[in-house]
Computed example of a mutant assay.
Amino acid sequence: MPYWLMKSEPDEFSIHDLQRLGQARWDGVRNYQARNFLRSMLAGEQLFFYHSSCPEPGIAGIARIIAPAYADPTALDPHSHYFDSKASSEKNPWSAVDVAFVKAFSRVIPLAELKAQSALLELPLVHKGSRLSVMPVSAEQWAAILALSER
């Protein structure tokens, strides 16, 4: 079963927001490669919840996909920050998935610590200039990150 990493700015939506809600729609992805990853997700697959664009970016916990990809309604909402004037109800190029809270880590695993792990050298997150908000994580990388979360 594939694993994933998905980024969110904690000021907008954090692991603690997901914990409070229990489940939520993951929307607003406006990169075609990241969108294609969303479209390949299946219910039951797990993801690392990554806090980005904050004082200490890093992995904050785990969530689970509970519904496969569907048309992202924020693309059609003119009041949404993620509105896309080229999208229509007949042709919406953007996707969203539903996720559920699994676990918040006792600490955020900082990006610097992730970059220092030889087991994570191939993870796109640790590559300079990587800005992809949704990415696959191999089983080996998943296990290495889980081990870091238990330190």
Rank of each mutant, 00 (worst) to 15 (best):
D98H: 13
E140L: 14
A119G: 04
S133A: 15
D84S: 11
P68F: 01
A75R: 01
A104M: 08
N31C: 04
A104R: 11
I15F: 11
A43P: 13
C54A: 14
R64L: 00
G61H: 09
R20E: 07
H79N: 13
S118Q: 12
V126S: 05
L114N: 12
I65C: 13
M41Q: 04
E140P: 02
L47K: 01
E140S: 13
F49G: 07
S130W: 08
S14K: 08
S138Q: 15
S118I: 10
A87M: 12
Y82T: 06
K115H: 07
A69H: 02
S149Y: 09
V97D: 01
P57K: 10
L42A: 12
L76C: 03
L18C: 03
F105C: 05
Y70G: 06
R64S: 10
A119M: 04
I109A: 11
L120F: 10
S40T: 12
Y32N: 12
A87W: 10
Q19K: 14
G58D: 06
A87V: 06
H127D: 02
A24S: 14
G61Y: 11
P68M: 10
Q33Y: 01
P55M: 08
R39T: 09
I65A: 05
L42F: 02
A71R: 08
L47R: 00
S130G: 02
G44E: 09
D17R: 08
R64T: 13
V99A: 03
P93W: 07
K86D: 15
G28S: 02
P73K: 02
S88T: 15
L123G: 02
K128P: 02
C54I: 14
L18M: 07
L38R: 08
T74W: 04
G28V: 05
S118C: 00
Q19I: 07
P78Y: 00
V137M: 12
S118T: 13
S133E: 11
L132Q: 14
L18P: 07
L21Q: 10
V102E: 14
L47E: 00
E90V: 02
W142N: 06
V108L: 12
E45D: 12
A60S: 15
